Amino acid sequence: MADIQRRPLLRHLRGAPTTYVRHLRRGRTVHEGVGVSFWFRPLNAVISEIPVDDRELPMLFHVRTSDYQDVSAQATVTYRIEDPVLAARRLDFAISPDTGAWRSAPLDQVATMLTEIAQQYVLTLVTGMPLREAITTGPAAIRDAVTDGLAGDGRLTDIGVTVVGVRVVAVRPEAEVERALQTPAREQVQQEADRATYERRAVAVERERAIAENEMQNQIELAHREERLVAQRGVNDRRRAEEAAAAAWVAAEAQAERNRLDAAVQADARRALGAAEAEANSAYLAVYRDMEPSVLLALAAQALAERLPEIGQLNLSPDVLTTVLGGLAAPSSDGGGA
Score class of each variant (00 low, 15 high):
L86T: 07
G100L: 01
L43M: 08
M129K: 10
E32G: 02
D108M: 10
T29K: 05
A88E: 10
A145L: 01
L9F: 15
F93K: 01
Q69F: 01
L91H: 02
D53L: 15
L91V: 05
Q120R: 11
R22K: 15
L131W: 02
R103H: 11
H12S: 13
A94F: 05
P8T: 07
H62Y: 13
E56R: 14
A145D: 01
E32V: 03
P106W: 04
A16H: 13
A87N: 05
S37Y: 09
V110L: 03
A145K: 03
T127V: 09
H23C: 09
Q74F: 02
G15V: 12
P42L: 05
A94V: 13
H31F: 15
Y68D: 15
P130G: 15
G27H: 09
L9M: 14
V52I: 11
T18V: 12
V126L: 12
I50E: 02
A141S: 11
A88I: 10
Q109K: 12
W39Q: 06
S66V: 09
F40D: 04
E116V: 14
P42W: 05
A88K: 02
T136Q: 13
L91P: 00
S72R: 13
R55G: 03
D70Y: 01
L107H: 04
G138F: 03
T127R: 15
G138K: 01
V126F: 09
Q74G: 07
F93L: 06
V21P: 01
L123D: 14
R80A: 07
T29L: 10
T99F: 07
T29N: 10
L60M: 10
V71D: 02
P8F: 09
L60W: 06
H31Y: 14
L131Y: 00
H23K: 07
R132Q: 13
R7A: 14
V21K: 02
R143C: 08
I142M: 03
E49D: 12
I95E: 01
I142V: 10
P97A: 05
